[in-house]
Amino acid sequence: MARFRGRGMASVNYPIGMNLGGDPSQALIHSNPDGKFTVALSAIDLGQGMKQVTRQVAAETLGVPIEDVYVDTADSDTGPHDMGSFASRGTHRMGNAVIAAAREARGVLLEAAAEELEVNAADLVTDGKGNIHVKGAPSRSITVRATAQAAQFKQGKTIAGRGIFLIPLSSVDPETGEMNPNTAFAHACLVADVEVDDETGEVSVLGMSSAYELGRVINPKMVEQQLVGGAWMGISHALYETPEPYYPNPDHGPRDFNEYLMPGPGDLAPYSITILERPAPDGPFGGKGPGEMCANPVLPAIANAVYNAVGVRVNDLPITPEKILRGIRANGGAKPQARRGGAL
């Protein structure tokens, strides 16, 4: 009886969003009389960073401080339409919609400022600190707040912008079967080292190492956070999570999520990540989005590592000790495969 070490690898080309019925996202931006901006979205933030990313994108495009932008994702009944938070599409689709809305709002903002300064709007620039001034003449300036108040109370003008980003429906070519399912792909490669106990069938993940290419990283800390959390979800999916672990007889299986097995803080594996940035031509500032692919390569990498360790190919998830022990028995014992590469 022994513990066998194995290494597995997996690579992912991940499509950002989908277009089965066309894939639109809308954003609306308006200024308030205090010179701050509200961005209205129906994209949902469950902690994945939708609000933070769209706030950064809006502030950058408007040319105002990030503190002066508020993102409201409160209500998908009354907010502008969005297809939803899925398929890793949020940053790409909604980011582009926010850029379009912010450009239009910025245009009105500069027109209102031009009227106050009695200059041509084309000659105005923003300093990103809440001021608008004439290009090359910083002393001829007005604050965004004064501009918003003049627009609201004097000019009778709404500083606002509408934005939509649409990936149109791509139909299948009847001759060739070709279609264009997507415009942006993110990429990743992940290596996992595991140890498999041939007596208990238990798998320990010893360490993982990955490289992710995500286009422009709009918020590096949130990307890292998503990749770390997502890799844990990948381990959980690969080795633990199922409503019926006691196959083929579910009589003694879990009855609710309180008995649903997931790895805890004592089951973590050291994980090193390298981020590569290859900006997407049609992404918001080149961004694509990590999303679901944080977890995806972990599953096949662990499955490959288990095969590498004991020669058992488990084809359905999760890779439970029972499946490994049955495989070892069917093979007449653990059959370690050849190893390549050094330490992770």
Partner: peptide, 13 residues
């Protein structure tokens, strides 16, 4: 923290 479940962060942070 072994008695506290987190579904997002992977616990490491």
């Amino acid at each position: 923290i072994a008695g506290n479940i987190c579904r997002c962060t992977g616990y490491e942070p």
